[in-house]
């Protein structure tokens, strides 16, 4: 999945960063399950527009809605490194 744009949202008090990542295509169930293959995934499939939250412990947390084109990601610890890892992971989808 190609990333179209990364927008900085907030610097958090604990040193983590929040960013909004927009993709070139809409988020599909397949992408959500792919994210889940690398950490902990919560997927509210019963919602009319399913919400998901994905946690890669110590690295990042991201949340979004199936059918949207953007997710919100909280980058923990070493935010730059965590972002680079996420980009590399998502690029393989």
């Amino acid at each position: 999945m190609k990333i179209a744009k990364i927008k900085h949202v907030e610097d958090c008090f604990d040193g983590s960063f929040i960013k909004e990542i927009a993709f070139e295509q809409v988020i599909t169930k397949e992408l959500i399950l792919y994210l889940g293959s690398d950490g902990k995934l919560q997927y509210f499939e019963t919602f009319a527009r399913p919400f998901f939250k994905f946690v890669k412990q110590g690295k990042y947390e991201c949340k979004g809605v199936e059918g949207n084109q953007a997710i919100r990601i909280i980058l923990k610890n070493n935010p730059e490194q965590s972002l680079a890892e996420f980009i590399e992971f998502i690029d393989k989808f």
């Binding site: 399950l33 889940g36 902990k40 997927y43 019963t46 919400f51 946690v55 412990q57």
Partner: peptide, 18 residues
């Protein structure tokens, strides 16, 4: 109501954390 219903029926569907 829908969110409460969702949280009571949805758990982590994958948990690959070490």
């Amino acid at each position: 109501d829908k969110i409460c219903e969702g949280t009571s029926t949805t758990d982590f569907i994958t948990d690959n954390m070490e």
